[in-house]
Design a protein around this nucleic acid. Structure first.
Length: 824
RNA sequence: GCCGAAGUGGCGGAAUUGGCAGACGCAGUGGACUCAAAAUCCACCGCCUUCAAAAGCGUGCCGGUUCGAGUCCGGCCUUCGGCACCA
């Protein structure tokens, strides 16, 4: 064994060996319980960043730990390799997206391997590979055949800079989440997945996920935005048209004093056509539509509206009320029309005050009687219904049920549940993505590509224009196809799929990555799924995690998989910060993983990133603290070196121990217990590492004592240190394991288990308090009689001082811990 | 505005069930080794008063429960995250 810790040589050596032996390959059905550990696969931007290092270090600890605990661990890695940056590189530098992507993958694979992560590289997948996207396309067709993929014209989010449409989830504060450009609304024919058909299950099944952070579940709940209410059918007096509204407060329907429509509502045109109101309505609509999405949906926007000359008839009391259009009503939610109840809705109240519309109280809450003249804001509380015909006198919650029953009986409304969630817009007007496998035929219309014609390959001989338009549109050999049904010339769909489609099923492909006959074999998927531990950034809390859940539920319904939730346990890691903010090129605070690995080694990098903070929390990068972890590994190395010969010769059972020997053994087993609990139970790797540091410190203290050394106890301590650190620092521990005489990998060893008897002590330190303040401590035999401890405590001179001249009111004795003497 | 999380030394963080606040690490101070330096090893390291001993104060703020509160309860403040004219 070398005296110096030469991390470069050690890490190279073991990485090569593990690769040669395919050390982390797994197959189904070994005689062990399965464990699927998955980290979110990266977009191959070209270089690993610290967020990746953190993500994959956490995952590797879990995977290696579970492996040592006797599980058959699936731990795969791949590439989310379709996406816009590849195309931008093509436009800017003239490199083909495929070439650019595969080179990036090669580089990042090399960097990942330098981290020594225990991936089964035989299962590597890349979503941009035809072997993969063939099945992405096949899965699209499954959705299509089951009515879950459809095309419609809709007002969609358009990013002018990315030259493509975006899903709702990809718009943040009215801007594109990728490039921050302000998003525009465009009316376009687009492909959608019917996520709304699964809204209730996506919501309800969150309850089946106790292993997910509450925060993420709440975010999804908000995003789905379920609200229960009623759909009520008013009629237009002048034309007899139906005018439906959605409301969650149908108990206030007797308080409706006007009706208000979204500017885009189809009835607006019909009702104003040829009337004196037409011009003013057009003008109003034009002004509203001039506003950006952000301004229009801002709560700051002054509420405005105009009367359009028509009236609606309230089905409950026959009243005629004016119909207006308003800038605060959204066409996309509910029916695009709202009943105005100024007395009991904040927005309606402000609006009615501004335009002098009638305000009528129909719910009287507890307290003084509401008087319209005195009201300064709407009353949204529960109460007793008043001015509500036959429903007057009922508590409003009861009235709600009665009213909706009445509506249903009289055919003028029904119970309705509304969701904020919209269908998932998956079309992208881009090249570097999985082509949507559809052709358009003049004769047969829209025709899906037959399975045997998949994949629809991306043409490589294409030109990228600086306009940013998809070259697929201008590629004749791509666009021109023959109709699969009638054989006549037809045109291919040129939109590609959102990359989130590719990442919504990769965890299934990992179960069976080389299958050429199917997307995945059901038995294999049933063996490995669900993912036992999923690890990634919280930025995917809504997008990826909801889409993946949606796909899994669809596949379950199609009998492709047996689980209905893909990820049993979810860990959302925090960001890696430098100088208080996220590492980014523009801020110039990026620390390169490659440089850190070069300078200190992968083991040090991993140790630091796991030690500096618990995984969910943001982590502040600190170069000096990295050195601290490097020092620690050196301390471990020197200990092993110092005792190397000694422990190789040590043989036999550890007998009865005393003094320092017994103390060291106890510390060893305490550490095993603590590390096991921290890693298995709570993923608190930082405290697990600090516990091992304490054992190392303890061993140094033991070494300094220079009494007789019990080599068996030392051997147990050192072996425990190596085993406990193996998931964290796989290279140095492997080297040390062989150095101290073993001939097989430390990573195939059993995780150590503490021996409870070694933790026993003869004496304990008991704290003595007077009125809750610590005044002294005593060392007493363990489990000493309460009365006896109390007697000893009272007799202490330091304690006695505080007792002098006072009455003892009470004495609390917690065995082996503390005595509290209460005096008055 | 609504929902959620967090607030502990100079810094990252620990305290898992209400029981010695500050484990472990970084930075800092002192010492050993060395001709010297680096590396290493050892010790100290919340604030305040103090030569010292000893005391007092201390987990964002105010109050409460308790023999005892970083931890539980009520009210606030600040920061971060999500949602937001969703009818």
């Amino acid at each position: 064994m070398e005296e110096r810790y030469n991390f470069t040589a050690i890490e190279d050596k073991w990485q090569k060996k593990w690769a040669e032996e395919n050390a982390y390959k797994v197959v189904e059905g070994e005689d062990k319980p399965k464990y699927y550990c998955l980290e979110m696969f990266p977009y191959p931007s070209g270089n690993l960043h610290m967020g990746h290092v953190r993500n994959y270090s956490i995952g590797d600890v879990v995977a290696r730990f579970k492996n040592m605990q006797g599980f058959n661990v699936l731990h795969p890695m791949g590439w989310d390799s379709f996406g816009l940056p590849a195309e931008n590189a093509a436009i800017k530098h003239g490199v083909a997206p495929a070439k650019w992507t595969w080179e990036n993958i090669a580089n990042m694979r090399r960097q990942l391997k330098a981290m020594g992560i225990s991936y089964d590289w035989d299962r590597e997948v890349a979503s941009c590979h035809p072997d993969y996207y063939k099945w992405t396309q096949w899965l699209f067709l499954q959705l299509f055949h089951n009515g879950l993929a459809y095309k419609k014209k809709a007002a969609v989010n358009w990013c002018p800079s990315c030259q493509t449409v975006l899903a709702n989830e990809q718009v943040v504060d009215g801007a594109c989440e990728r490039c921050d450009s302000e998003v525009e609304k465009k009316a376009l024919e687009q492909w959608f997945f019917k996520t709304t058909a699964y809204a209730d299950r996506l919501l309800d099944d969150l309850e089946k996920l106790p292993g997910w952070p509450e925060k993420v579940k709440i975010m999804q709940e908000n995003w789905i935005g379920r609200s229960e209410g009623a759909r009520i059918k008013f009629t237009v007096k002048e034309t007899g048209d139906d005018l439906e509204v959605f409301t969650t407060r149908h108990d206030t329907v007797f308080g409706v004093t006007y009706m208000i429509l979204a500017p885009e509502h189809p009835l607006v045109k019909i009702l104003t056509k040829g009337t004196e109101y037409e011009a003013r309505a057009q003008e109003f609509i034009k002004n509203v539509q001039k506003l950006s999405e952000v301004d229009r949906t801002s709560t700051e926007l002054e509420k405005e509206g105009i009367f359009i000359g028509a009236h609606a008839v309230n089905p409950l009391n026959g009243e005629e009320i004016p119909i207006l259009i308003g800038n605060y009503v959204l066409m996309e939610y509910g029916t695009g029309a709202v009943m105005g109840v100024p007395a009991h809705d904040e927005r309606d109240f402000k609006f009615a005050k501004k335009y002098n519309l009638e305000i009528r109280v129909v719910i009287q809450p507890e307290g003084p009687e509401l008087k319209v003249e005195e009201m300064e804001e709407a009353s949204t509380e529960d109460g007793i219904m008043v001015n509500s015909g036959d429903f007057s006198g009922l508590p409003n919650r009861e009235g709600m049920v009665k009213i909706v029953d009445y509506l249903e009986k009289n055919n003028c409304g029904q119970r309705q549940i509304n969701y904020r969630l919209r269908d998932w817009l998956i079309s992208r007007q881009r090249y570097w993505g999985a082509a949507i496998p559809i052709v358009y035929c003049d004769e047969c219309g829209l025709v899906p590509v037959p399975d045997q014609d998949l994949p629809v390959l991306l043409p490589e001989d294409v030109e990228f224009r600086p306009s940013g338009e998809s070259p697929l549109k201008y590629s004749p050999e791509f666009v021109n196809a023959t109709c699969p049904t009638c054989g006549k010339p037809a045109k291919r769909e040129t939109d590609t799929m959102d990359t989130f489609v590719c990442s919504s099923w990769y965890f299934l492909r990992f179960c069976d990555p080389k299958n050429t006959e199917e997307a995945f074999n059901k038995d294999k998927v049933d063996y490995w799924m669900a993912v036992d531990q999923y690890i990634g950034g919280v930025e995917h809390a809504i997008l990826h995690l909801m889409y993946a859940r949606f796909f899994t539920k669809v596949f379950k319904d199609l009998n492709l998989v047996s689980v209905d939730e893909p990820f049993t346990n979810l860990l959302t890691q925090g960001m890696v910060l430098k100088d208080g903010s996220k590492m980014s090129k523009s801020k110039g605070n990026v620390v390169s993983p490659e440089e850190i690995i070069k300078k200190y080694g992968a083991d040090t990098a991993r140790m630091f990133i796991l030690f500096a903070a618990p995984p969910e929390r943001d982590l502040e990068w600190n170069d000096q603290a990295v050195e601290g972890c490097y020092r620690f590994l050196n301390r471990v190395w020197r200990l092993a070196f110092a005792y190397n010969e000694g422990i190789k010769g040590a043989q036999g059972e550890i007998g009865a121990l005393e003094g320092a020997d017994r103390g060291l053994r106890r510390l060893t087993h305490l550490t095993i217990k603590k590390v096991t609990e921290d890693v298995a139970g709570r993923f608190n790797f930082n405290t697990a590492i600090s516990a091992v540091m304490e054992l190392v410190n303890g061993l140094y203290n033991y070494k300094d004592k220079e009494q007789g050394t019990n080599m068996l106890v030392v051997k147990e301590a050192i072996e425990s240190i190596v085993l406990l650190l193996a998931p964290f620092a796989p290279h140095i521990t492997e080297e040390l394991w062989y150095s101290i005489g073993y001939e097989t990998s430390v990573h195939q060893e059993k995780w150590p288990v503490h021996i409870p008897e070694t933790l026993a002590v003869d004496e304990v330190t008991v704290v003595v308090q007077v009125n809750g303040k610590v005044r002294d401590k005593i060392i007493v035999p363990v489990n000493m009689d309460k009365k006896a401890v109390e007697g000893l405590a009272k007799a202490l001179p330091k304690v006695d001082e505080y007792l002098k001249g006072k009455d003892i009111k009470k004495v609390v004795v917690i065995p082996n811990k503390l005595v509290n003497i209460v005096v008055g």
